[in-house]
Amino acid sequence: MEVRTIKVFTTVDNINLHTQVVDMSMTYGQQFGPTYLDGADVTKIKPHNSHEGKTFYVLPNDDTLRVEAFEYYHTTDPSFLGRYMSALNHTKKWKYPQVNGLTSIKWADNNCYLATALLTLQQIELKFNPPALQDAYYRARAGEAANFCALILAYCNKTVGELGDVRETMSYLFQHANLDSCKRVLNVVCKTCGQQQTTLKGVEAVMYMGTLSYEQFKKGVQIPCTCGKQATKYLVQQESPFVMMSAPPAQYELKHGTFTCASEYTGNYQCGHYKHITSKETLYCIDGALLTKSSEYKGPITDVFYKENSYTTTIK
């Protein structure tokens, strides 16, 4: 009895394709271990004539594949690729409408935090270190965002349907971005203890939790000093293409032309909904596939993004 075979390709990165001759009487799992086709788990399936010449994702289970996976995804987590594939199996079914010149995501599976993050990423200057993220990001900007969303979920250790947080998501993504040249110098002034300067680099240099107003941050924000008295913390120097200011959701007025974009969060910790506000020729609110415009805006804002380049204080 002759062994019926077909020729397929296996890959971990969709760049390096490895030619395989597979036995049609055995499952993919018996031949390769966990195997995925377009995100779908085909591990328990036997090869079919229609699979001839198709590319299958496999887990990096030998040295060659491990090197290829690390170079593309910059992670050695053995569960990463499987999590990416199972997320992709959902995100490829989502709709990605162009809204006001940006790629958004039609609401499904509690994905409003991903839509808000995706919209924000198209408006701030950011370059990702893992080629996987950078490639998928370019495709997302062009309207094909399924891979990018699935990668975000995998890097953030999230599953489809789980509630997510924009600030946490951005923080994970910033860790995989090139923020080497970003720098922030802060000064804390206390009447009792004097003053202390701190220099922050990388992710810490672009994120701040405690106030939404970048102007206020430049002037000074009140913080408790270690001595128990009130101290003032203010920005001395900022070198970065953008800054992200966050605070627990509270009524906040966004003035046209003073910011790049913002995240609105309605609801409580267990259950809520994100919308995205962007400042173009007027203010726009993007909620999944829905767009509304207004000249002014007041609502429960939790993150505001500002364009920056270089700032030095005039406070002496």
Score class of each variant (00 low, 15 high):
L81D: 05
I315G: 12
F56N: 03
H273Q: 00
K316E: 15
E253F: 08
H51D: 14
I124A: 03
Q222S: 13
K44H: 12
N61V: 10
V99D: 02
N49V: 13
C285E: 12
Q122C: 05
Y73S: 04
L37P: 04
V221R: 04
V188W: 07
L290S: 15
K275S: 11
A177R: 02
D41R: 07
I301E: 00
L186V: 15
A117F: 01
E308P: 11
E253D: 10
E125Y: 06
E308H: 06
L173E: 00
Q31T: 13
L291G: 09
F242L: 02
F174V: 04
L88P: 05
S310V: 15
W107F: 05
K183H: 09
V188C: 09
N14D: 10
F259K: 03
G164Q: 03
C190K: 01
T266S: 13
L121H: 01
F56A: 06
L212Y: 01
V99I: 15
H256G: 11
A117K: 02
F32N: 08
Q230N: 12
V160M: 02
F32H: 12
R139Y: 09
C271I: 11
K298P: 04
K183E: 07
Q175P: 10
G82L: 14
K316A: 15
F148C: 04
L212R: 05
C271Y: 11
S104N: 06
E162N: 00
W94M: 05
G194H: 02
V22H: 03
I45T: 13
T19E: 15
V3E: 15
T91M: 02
T11S: 10
I301N: 00
Y284N: 08
L186C: 10
A250C: 11
C285W: 00
V12A: 08
Y57G: 06
L200F: 12
P34R: 10
M85V: 07
K44G: 14
D38T: 09
Q195K: 13
L114P: 05
D165C: 15
K183M: 10
T313I: 13
K218V: 06
I152Q: 02
I45G: 13
V185H: 03
A250G: 13
H276K: 01
K95Y: 07
Y214N: 02
S263H: 15
G161W: 04
T278Y: 14
M244D: 00
G33M: 02
G194T: 02
T76P: 14
G267M: 07
R83Y: 06
L212P: 02
P224S: 14
M85Y: 11
P131S: 03
Y269T: 15
A40I: 13
G272H: 00
G228T: 04
Y36V: 06
S295Y: 12
T27L: 10
Q270P: 05
Y274D: 00
G53L: 13
A136D: 04
A205E: 00
Y73Q: 06
W107S: 05
Q270C: 11
Q20I: 10
T198W: 11
T76H: 10
S310C: 09
S279I: 01
V99T: 09
S25C: 10
A108I: 07
Q20L: 08
S86P: 05
I45D: 15
L186D: 07
M207V: 08
R66H: 09
S240C: 05
A115N: 07
S25G: 11
V21H: 12
S246Q: 01
P34I: 08
G220K: 02
D62S: 15
P300C: 15
E253C: 07
E281D: 14
L291M: 11
C227A: 01
L65S: 11
Y155G: 01
T64M: 12
T260V: 15
T64K: 12
Q175N: 11
T103R: 06
F174Y: 05
M24I: 13
D63A: 11
L186G: 04
N268V: 07
F128Y: 08
V189S: 11
E296T: 12
G161L: 01
T55L: 06
G29D: 09
P300R: 14
L254W: 05
V42S: 08
L200T: 11
G288T: 04
G220A: 06
V304F: 01
T313V: 12
N49D: 15
V189I: 10
R184S: 15
F9A: 12
S50W: 13
H273G: 00
G82V: 15
T302Y: 01
Y138T: 15
T302K: 01
V21A: 12
S25E: 13
L283H: 00
C271D: 06
Q197K: 12
F9I: 09
K316N: 15
D13N: 14
G39H: 09
V8N: 04
Y214D: 01
F32A: 07
F174R: 00
K316V: 15
G101C: 04
I301F: 00
T76Y: 11
H256D: 06
N129T: 09
A154V: 06
T211M: 08
D41Y: 07
P249C: 03
L151E: 03
M244G: 00
Y155L: 05
E308G: 07
Q196K: 13
D23G: 11
A150G: 05
T10D: 01
A205M: 00
H256C: 15
T278Q: 09
L17H: 12
L59Y: 13
C112V: 02
